Simulated assay, not measured.
Amino acid sequence: MSADSSTTGKSGLRLPTVGVEEEFILVDQLTGHPVSRNRDVAAAAARRGLDLDLELTSCQVEVATSACATGQELLAELRELRTVVAEAADEVGVAVIAAGVPPTVPDHFPITDTDRYRHIGQRFGMLAHEQGISGCHVHVGVSDRDTAVAVSNHLRHRLPILLALSANSPVYRDADTGHASWRSVLWSRWPASGPPPHLRSREHFEQLVSMFVASGAILDDHMVYWDIRPSDHLPTVEIRVGDVQSRADEAVVVATLVRALVMTAVHDIASDLAPPIVDSDVLAAAMWKAAHDGIDGDGIDVVTQQPVSAIAQMESLVTDIRPALDALGEAALVEAALDRLRAEGNGATRRRDWFAQKGTGRDIVESAAREFTG
């Protein structure tokens, strides 16, 4: 994603750019098992003019969009990127899927052969070798790092419903995990992961990062894996709570909601409105509940500390950010997505239904491959 640019709409709300990073899993076309071919696929993609990023495990690649001004622009770019990746994978004889975890996996994943990734593998052991998990990271342009830190405080209480919405990893090791987002459960084992703490200032954020690095808990700034963080290389706030989405249009819905949430937070910050006070233990319980139930069950309202259905939480969120959605011209997109969620559920719903019918991770891989460029 390129540098931040923005305009101001008629409502007075700033209209920031938005970009998405998606991590994908390379799998054998016959067995559905992850395969260590990310360098080969990256080379094939480069011949098509696309530079892929290599992830920690050698069965993964990552794409990143540019800074987009509209949801339609973002959708077109995501579909183009996915098409190129699928063609490159097919050229080298593998398939590619967008799933939070590989539905069928070996005992461990080979580490991509770079100095940094080898160091992570040596330092973090089985955490790294059991990786192979894929997220959807949304970058929204902000004016500076101080704003990014303030936005993080304003969005902490929204993390559970964003996780429930984006859940897309219920099947792992050929089994229903009992969780809509098993990716988030695996990811929570890393240091500096999960919801960030309430940050008093940019300096507080930087002090925490320095402490993590100096203690050896993380190797560098890029290993701050919190669900919201100021980007370490872009003028953005990065929301990274979600599983990668099966379809590009679902990724655009997640990105649009995040973009509108950031716009609303920036407006509230400018109006001197304080963020909600959220108890960390309640937030942790709400995150687990969201990972377990996804969009189909109940969640926890971390402000009232009361149970509430995930769909009701989504409806409340959309109401709260309606001015931002109207300013973006994306309200109809989000309302249509809400209708689909009520009727069909999300990626985790589909995965679990398919697994119940077919009973193998291989069938989940096939269905995910069909949806990849849709």
Rank of each mutant, 00 (worst) to 15 (best):
H154M: 11
A167K: 04
L159R: 00
M223K: 09
V151G: 06
V224E: 07
L155M: 11
G135A: 15
G141H: 13
D146F: 03
L199S: 04
V151D: 03
F212I: 03
G125N: 14
I111K: 06
R116P: 14
L127P: 13
R240A: 06
A217Q: 15
D174V: 03
S143I: 07
L127V: 08
R118A: 14
A148S: 10
D107T: 06
I218M: 14
W190K: 01
S152H: 00
D146W: 05
A148I: 06
E206W: 02
A217E: 14
M223N: 11
N168F: 10
T177S: 15
L208T: 05
G216E: 11
I161P: 00
G135V: 13
T112M: 04
A164N: 03
T177E: 01
L127S: 11
L162C: 04
P191C: 03
V142R: 09
M223D: 13
Q131P: 00
D115W: 05
H233G: 08
V149R: 06
S188A: 15
E203A: 14
R202M: 05
D227V: 00
T114H: 05
H154W: 03
D107Q: 08
W226V: 12
R116L: 10
P196L: 10
I120Q: 08
A214C: 05
P195S: 04
L186I: 05
H179G: 01
H157I: 04
D220V: 15
F109Y: 15
C136I: 14
G194Q: 04
P230T: 03
R240S: 08
E206A: 13
G132M: 14
L127D: 12
I218P: 13
R173A: 15
R145F: 07
F109S: 01
H222P: 02
V140F: 05
R156F: 05
I218E: 13
Y225F: 15
R189C: 07
A180P: 01
S134Y: 07
Q131T: 06
D113F: 09
L208R: 10
W187A: 02
V140A: 05
T147K: 07
A214F: 01
F205R: 08
P235M: 09
P160A: 09
A167M: 09
R118W: 00
H222D: 14
N153R: 13
D174F: 00
P196N: 10
T147A: 09
G194R: 12
P196Q: 08
W182F: 14
W187N: 03
S143E: 13
S193G: 08
P191Q: 11
E238Y: 08
R229M: 04
V149L: 07
I120T: 02
E238C: 04
N168E: 04
A128N: 04
I228M: 10
H129P: 03
W226R: 11
T236E: 15
V138L: 10
